[in-house]
């Protein structure tokens, strides 16, 4: 585990606020990201994640608040730290009419890299991302996963010490998402400070050291993953799938087992939680007494999802469906 309380964080944000007419997209955000940290910014659509990245990278102007990146004041002078940052936007935005190789060389040139260096770096990244076979194909002809990988490659072409990743695995196939997560982990191990926004909780839990939960432009909780998981670590949970509807079943079970909490997880699933051991036998019998049949009973590992739901009260299923799935 890295140092959490860095006295001189690489990114420091204080009371950052951004309004678009009547809507407050970012509402008084304050946080810090330490050197070499992989920091997660987790929240549903419309939480202000992309706006925050736009503000930090100079694509948007804050209404108030302070942004310091590597000691440079960036709220008023966004160009001050742009040479230190790489940005991977939520949508692949490279040039459709250029080949993958030419796109990378062009992005390298934007950061002042000389021709020989940018050509070498472009070839190196195409190989790392497994795109060498498509180097000469136009970007417009790439698949979604390939586009995403090349967009990440473009974001790191100039070897930035700070990388902003906006929903990097949204809307792509499982294999590509897994590969991208591995690449993010590798970049982190190599010392890159990463600011990652996502609405995939498992992804954030797997990759990040610290996470901020963001809802409606505000941070509702910020801590290390270990600390966030602490309250649910002692809890035991089980998911029971029954034939037929669980309507009324939860109330019956709650009356019979007051030491457990029961919650309808879906139309045919009951979630059982307790701080004690949950024995499945008596529960199965009680369900059968009510005319139901247990199809499956599965122990659940305490996860960040539980913490997120507990803190924000947000419906996770709805959040996962927001951007069309993929990624997990």
């Amino acid at each position: 585990m890295r140092i959490i309380n860095d006295p001189d964080p690489l990114i420091r944000v204080e009371e950052l606020t951004k309004r678009y007419k009547e809507v407050t997209a970012v509402d008084g955000l304050s946080f810090a990201v330490n050197h070499g940290e992989l920091f997660g910014f987790l929240g549903p659509n419309g939480a202000g994640k992309t706006t925050t990245i736009s503000l930090l990278t100079g694509l948007a102007r804050p209404d108030s608040g302070a942004i310091r990146i590597a000691g440079r004041e960036c709220a008023k002078n966004p160009k001050a730290a742009q040479h230190l940052i790489g940005v991977v936007p939520d949508e692949s935005n490279l040039y459709p009419e250029l080949s993958g190789y030419d796109n990378l060389c062009f992005c390298a040139a934007l950061y002042g890299m000389r021709q020989a260096e940018r050509q070498m770096r472009a070839r190196e990244l195409l190989e790392v991302f497994g795109l060498e076979g498509a180097a000469d194909r136009k970007f417009a002809g790439y698949s979604k996963g390939m586009k995403r990988k090349l967009t990440i490659a473009a974001g790191i072409i100039h070897r930035p010490p700070i990388l902003f990743l906006d929903e990097p695995t949204t809307g792509i196939d499982v294999a590509s998402a897994r590969q991208i997560r591995q690449l993010i982990a590798d970049l982190h191990r190599a010392g890159t400070t990463i600011f990652l926004t996502t609405h995939y909780i498992e992804e954030a839990e797997r990759l990040c050291e610290r996470i901020a939960f963001v809802v409606q432009g505000r941070i509702v909780e910020i801590d290390s993953v270990v600390n966030l998981l602490q309250p649910v670590r002692q809890r035991r949970a089980m998911l029971i799938t029954v034939s037929g509807s669980v309507e009324g079943l939860c109330n019956h079970l709650a009356g019979a087992y007051p030491q457990f909490t029961f919650q309808a997880a879906s139309a045919d699933q009951v979630r059982v939680e307790s701080s004690d051991t949950i024995s499945i036998g008596p529960l199965v019998r009680s369900i059968e007494d009510q005319g139901g049949e247990v199809i499956e009973a599965r122990r659940l590992r305490p996860s960040l999802e539980d913490v997120f739901v507990r803190i924000t009260g947000i419906d996770l299923d709805a959040m996962k469906k927001e951007k069309g799935g993929g990624g997990q």
């Binding site: 100079g58 694509l59 940052i85 935005n93 490279l94 992005c107 934007l110 950061y111 473009a154």
Partner: peptide
């Protein structure tokens, strides 16, 4: 419109 202009705005040039 296709946001590739954002790449230019992110480049560290005036």
């Amino acid at each position: 419109k296709n946001r590739s202009f954002d790449r230019l705005l992110l480049a560290p040039i005036p």
